[in-house]
């Protein structure tokens, strides 16, 4: 009886011990993915920002930026057929308005990426501010199990990829996070595809006036490493018009935007709550279950060996010999 029990325990011990690495290293990378139908809204604010309004006057205002990301399931299914992997297509819009509710910028994007690794996938329709791009690096989201290292991050305004530097671990509102920072140095960029100034064509403006658009930013992200989701972000963003006829009166340089953009308090709270709940699901597959199964496997193995040892002890338990070979009958009986 003990022998049978020890064999059953051994089978369970191997089952749980094998399940532990299989779950962590085989199942998790295949199961953990960004859902294709996600819809997410984020509101950012820049209090006391300097902007150029529709009448081309520079003014101070409290700017609000609404950033919507909507998973396009139909497009992702089309791209998956040719790419042969799980793909997410995010149609995004960053819409900025001043304190009077007037539009300041309107930047549409289509970001296509691998649902598991968050790496960009290139397909028709990929764009930043209505211009086709071929992204390299991350945007919006880090991969699951983010590492303590620098990553490449795509900057939609300049349409360039630059390193985003890992700057250490921090605790943000009770969540252990990795802090990343990226600096985009001053550089000439295209005019936004939609301008708040009427009768101005962004495609021909530079040619007509000789005035260039320049931009710099410092981008900061606090990323929860298990999910790869940023729980907070800030950006110190500046844009200027330089040279040409449009800036003559202002001495050759005009501020178009100068502000410190931060997430709105109620959205920080909801993001932190969301990430905390998602984190538990990822930890379940990467830590809690694998370690639990491994410990259970070792305990069951120990119990199995103990039972086996007891079953072999002579005269200890006569019932335990029921699965042994029968003793040969004495000769002459």
């Amino acid at each position: 009886m003990r022998r049978k029990a020890s064999l059953i325990l051994l089978a369970f011990a191997v089952f749980f011990a094998a399940l532990s690495p299989l779950l962590r290293f085989y199942a998790f990378p295949r199961l953990a993915k960004v859902p294709a139908n996600q819809y997410q809204v984020m509101v950012l604010e820049a209090k006391g920002a300097t902007i150029m309004d529709a009448s081309m006057q520079v003014k101070k205002t409290d700017l609000s930026i609404v950033q919507t990301l909507r998973g396009n399931v139909e497009e992702s299914e089309k791209i998956e057929e040719s790419a042969g992997r799980d793909v997410v297509v995010w149609d995004g819009l960053s819409y900025a308005q001043d304190s009077d509710g007037k539009m300041v910028t309107r930047i549409p994007e289509r970001y296509i990426f691998d649902a598991h690794s968050s790496e960009p996938v290139h397909a028709t329709g990929e764009m930043a501010d209505a211009k086709p791009v071929k992204r390299e690096g991350l945007e919006f989201k880090w991969p699951f199990l983010t590492e303590k290292r620098d990553y490449e991050y795509f900057d939609a305004r300049s349409r360039t990829t630059n390193p985003i530097l890992y700057k250490g671990e921090q605790n943000f509102r009770g969540v252990d996070v990795y802090y990343f920072e990226q600096t985009i140095p001053w550089q000439k960029v295209d005019y936004p595809s939609t301008l708040p100034v009427p009768n101005m064509n962004p495609k021909t403006l530079e040619k007509q006036t000789g005035t260039e658009m320049w931009y710099t930013t410092v981008r900061k992200f606090w990323v929860e490493p298990t999910t790869g989701a940023p729980v907070y972000g800030e950006e110190i963003h500046k844009e200027e018009m330089r040279g040409g006829s449009l800036t003559e009166a202002a001495g050759g340089k005009m501020t178009v935007f100068d502000g410190h953009v931060k997430m709105r308090e109620d959205f920080i709270k909801s993001t932190v709550d969301l990430v905390k709940s998602q984190r538990v699901l990822v930890l379940l597959m990467t830590s809690y279950l694998p370690w639990g199964f491994l410990i259970l496997g070792v305990l069951l193995l120990a119990l199995s060996l103990w039972l086996e040892a007891r079953s072999r002890r002579p005269g200890d338990d006569p019932e335990s010999t029921d699965d042994r070979e029968p003793e040969p009958a004495p000769a002459g009986v």
Partner: peptide, 11 residues
């Protein structure tokens, strides 16, 4: 995969 959300990109 579900369906694309009918909610708009906000302005």
């Amino acid at each position: 995969p579900g369906k694309t959300s009918p909610k708009p990109l906000l302005t």
